[in-house]
């Protein structure tokens, strides 16, 4: 498992850890019931503090992505793919909303927006 932390990004470290693990769970890179590294080992390997990794794991538990088995550790939970997908769709909607607002403010029409979306989507291939 690879987790990459940016110290200067302005996003709190625990959030970066949380999001990256989430993505791996959703993409099935981390499989259901797979054992995650312990809070302390992860802190050591990521060169961050225990409270940070603890925070990340606690939020993942709260959001239902992982579960804490006492004396054993943290395991990937059976996630409701739909719920996870829903969360990502909401994020996209939020960003699209911003794009639409800017477009309207500057008299850019829907057709131009659609073209831009197509180009961007094709780009990654």
């Amino acid at each position: 498992m690879e987790i990459i932390i940016s110290n200067s990004s302005g996003v709190p470290i625990y959030e970066q850890i949380k999001e990256q693990i989430k993505v791996k769970i959703v993409s099935n890179e981390l499989k259901e019931n797979e054992l995650l590294p312990s809070i302390r080992t992860l802190a050591k390997d990521l060169y961050c503090s225990v409270i940070t990794t603890k925070n990340a794991y606690e939020e993942l538990v709260k959001e239902g992505y992982i579960k804490n088995v006492p004396s054993k550790g943290f395991y990937v939970a059976k996630i409701n793919k739909d719920v996870a997908l829903e969360e990502q769709l909401n994020k996209i909607e939020e960003l699209m909303d911003k794009a639409v607002t800017i477009a309207k403010m500057n008299n850019i029409n829907k057709k131009t927006l659609n073209e831009m979306l197509t180009i961007l989507y094709e780009e990654d291939k």
Binding site: P12, I13, Y14, A43, Y47, C48, S49, V50, I51, T52, N55
Partner: peptide, 22 residues
């Protein structure tokens, strides 16, 4: 900034703050 869980800051003999680093 990397490994501390808590930071306690002392100045002129008095504790100014004691909080989690995060």
């Amino acid at each position: 900034e990397h490994i501390a869980d808590y930071i306690t800051f002392i100045n002129r003999g008095e504790i100014v703050l004691s909080k989690t680093k995060d």
